[in-house]
Nucleic acid binder design. Structure first.
Lengths: 257, 257
DNA sequence: GTCAATTTGTTGTAATTCGAAACTAATATG
DNA sequence: CATATTAGTTTCGAATTACAACAAATTGAC
């Protein structure tokens, strides 16, 4: 086998597995450890991989950096919120799951223990996550895929969503204003969110505390339309008052860290 | 700092960077290497991370094993076929990409150097791959997601596909009979493939040699409907004769391994 | 405050991994 | 045909990392 071929294969392997050890590669290509080290060092020089003691990993993500770094913010909080929310979802339920990193965390939680869910989503990541559970029936809305986050939006998506009427709508959101307005940045995304609200028997909103009072351009409805809110810190007074006024149950998870 | 907190932070770091070294962690938490090793080993036992000499990486996704192992079969051949096929796709083209592992390889090739493609697909993996290139416009067909391979099939998918009329249709397939019949296993999938054939100006079929003479239940058309066939080994006489008879160009890639 | 359990640090030793240099084989190149 | 050039292997000392066992420190409960 040619050197270039081998190096290409090494890149593929790293991309696929996230990590390869020199031993693995020696085994796989039947060459000496030194040869592998040369390959790895050369590839590392070209930034094709990251070199480490004992092997190599994927280079610092070339694409999707914006989305992937955003994904990590408040990761632990999102997980805790997700853990709390899924307790309210019974087995066998039907639900929408929205675009966003929090909804993705929720999908990860659902996949662990739930059974027989039927889920409609317009988030390609959520669909990929839910595929992991064979008991689930996953329906993906069609439309144009946004490269930045794998969300699917547009007119076609809207029509698709409107075909369904499900038990739960699980929403993420960009901001909640002090007057209870639910806000987001993208007009098209907002239209889909609205459709989800209209076609769900119960709407659950999961937000981390950074969203309170945060501003965004497009109004997609009011907090009074929700059936439950789950968050990780006591909301500001104004919002807490609104929740009380409209008798909307909300859960503030206890932080474990 | 508590042990649980540190371990959670380690997980976050691994998720974020794909890799952390023990040294990094020692530096970051100001604790002894031994403590870090204990943490890493514990986390590895719980499958939260993958342990390696010198550090740790993200765990291997436990799900999708059946599909992922299948994915590796003839991996190199598929890659070579893909490399040959994408040379026929000009920048700025519009194309369908089908369900299957070969089409996924093709998507991986396209993402590397092509520009301004507009792609319609019913394969969630292809969509995820193509997202990597910001120049591409990716349109995903809606419908039910098959857990086993991320294919999207069904009536809704069919209607969605039929809305488009594109330059190229890139097909994968389960088998080609000696009489030139194109065969597959799933009736619903076949209907989608037929729709792709009907709505593409040129249909390109990429198959590895294991598909020749292989039988499957559902007939989805004849080899004469193709505009090009790319494969990795000289096809059997019968099929070669059919290709010649219908003046269908085909390329047999030279194996580099 | 005391005791027990847990967590962390230290030390010594074993196991891996690395890189440099010398050597072999195959392939061009004039 | 002699000579570069390139890729690969082998060997070996140095550096790095890991693990086990025990001591020290911290924590939590009563």
């Amino acid at each position: 086998m040619k050197q270039t071929t081998r190096q290409q294969k090494i890149i593929d392997l790293v991309q696929k597995n996230g990590y390869v050890s020199t031993d693995d590669l020696v085994e796989r290509f039947k060459v000496s450890p030194q040869t592998i080290r040369r390959d790895l060092n050369e590839l590392a020089d070209e930034n094709k991989i990251r070199r480490h003691h004992g092997g190599a990993t994927t280079p610092l993500s070339s694409v999707n950096t914006a989305y992937n770094t955003r994904k990590v913010m408040q990761l632990h909080e999102k997980d805790c919120i997700a853990e709390a929310l899924v307790k309210y979802i019974p087995n066998g339920a039907t639900l929408f799951i929205d675009i966003g990193t929090t909804p993705e965390s929720i999908a990860k939680e659902l996949v662990k223990n739930h059974k027989d869910l039927r889920v409609v989503t317009n988030n390609i990541n959520v669909a990929a996550i839910l595929m992991g559970n064979e008991d689930f029936k996953v329906i993906l809305a069609g439309g144009e895929v946004r490269n930045r986050d794998g969300g699917i939006v547009g007119e076609a998506t809207l029509d698709f969503i409107k075909q369904f009427r499900l038990d739960f709508g699980i929403l993420g959101i960009s901001g909640i204003d002090y007057d209870g307005s639910l806000l987001d940045f993208d007009y098209h995304e907002v239209r889909v969110k609205k459709a989800i609200i209209e076609n769900s028997r119960s709407v659950y909103l999961a937000v981390d505390h950074t969203k309170f009072g945060r501003n965004a351009m497009v109004n997609l409805g009011n907090i009074s339309e929700l059936d439950m809110l789950i968050t990780d810190q006591q909301p500001p007074e104004e919002i807490a008052a609104l929740l009380k006024e409209h008798n909307i149950p909300f859960e503030v998870i206890s932080r474990t860290s």
